[in-house]
């Protein structure tokens, strides 16, 4: 292998267009490899990619499929929304009032350490099986990373920033919305970034154990009735959903943090 060849390849990988080209190539190779292996394989658990995609296209646009998908998305949105509201409000309180922080922080450390899915039976006991249980569980699991990051951000608010607000008599709602919330926003967004994948896990888990609707329900039902193609199509849909969610969230983050110095953010 010649030295020039490798440096050329390296330069290609650094440039924007070269990176995209290599990435597309990688995705194509991965898809081809999967369909080649699964197509020729005799293993019934790994059906061919083409069949999975066919089933995906056949099942998910039906009213039943759409119903299951929207049921999942609704609870996901409600649970995450609730977690953000409660987490930011409580985090701001805890971060700004030292007495509150001292009082509750050991309890917080403990509750946070409980694996979120261990609370599935607890949520089922309180709310039975249904949407309330799902929303409650997602909110309960996702609130901690948001709350703790917000509290950290609020505790670390810059002294000069707060002094500036005091000196110029920026108080009340204008102080809260114009100074404190934007200053804490980067940390809130870090918390939400941790919460997003967690919310998907909790959504699927709650649907697998206690629901009659939703993506997780479809996947487990399909497994129980040995409809492997439907099961696989559910996994694919979840993968796409997770990908779309994280991509959309990254875009939202960039939009909300446009005022940040890009040099400071990247370091």
């Amino acid at each position: 292998m010649s030295v020039t060849r490798t440096t050329e390849l390296r330069r290609l990988a650094d440039g924007g267009r070269g990176r995209v080209a290599l990435g597309v190539l990688g995705a194509l190779v991965a898809v081809l490899a999967w369909s080649a292996v699964s197509g020729s394989s005799e293993n019934i658990y790994f059906p061919s990619l083409l069949e999975i995609l066919e089933r995906t296209a056949a099942y998910w646009p039906t009213p039943e499929g759409v119903d299951n998908l929207t049921a999942s998305l609704r609870t996901l949105g409600a649970g995450l929304g609730l977690a953000v509201l409660v987490g930011v409000a409580a985090g701001l309180l805890i971060g700004q009032v030292p007495v509150v922080a001292q009082t509750v922080s050991p309890a917080l450390e403990f509750v946070r350490a409980i694996p979120a899915t261990a609370l599935v039976p607890f949520a089922m006991m309180l709310f039975g099986v249904g949407d309330e249980m799902k929303v409650f569980l997602i909110a309960l699991g996702c609130v901690w990373p948001i709350l703790l990051n917000t509290a950290d951000g609020a505790r670390g608010l810059d002294a000069t920033l707060l002094d500036t607000a005091r000196v110029f008599h920026v108080t009340g709602l204008r102080r809260a919305l114009g100074v404190v919330v934007p200053a804490v926003l980067p940390r809130v967004l870090v918390g939400v970034r941790i919460a997003v994948p967690l919310s998907l896990i909790l959504m699927v888990t709650s649907e697998m154990v206690g629901a009659q609707r939703g993506l997780g329900y479809v996947i487990t039902q399909a497994q129980a009735t040995f409809q492997l193609l439907t099961m696989w199509s559910g996994i694919v849909v979840l993968g796409v959903l997770g990908f779309l969610l994280t991509t959309a969230y990254s875009a939202l983050e960039r939009l909300l943090l446009r005022w940040c110095d890009p040099k400071r953010v990247s370091s």
């Binding site: 000069t160 920033l161 002094d163 500036t164 114009g178 934007p182 200053a183 005022w259 940040c260």
Partner: peptide, 13 residues
Amino acid sequence: VVFQDYARSLMPW
């Protein structure tokens, strides 16, 4: 008041 640390006394957003 004008503070020494301009980077922190201006609201970056």
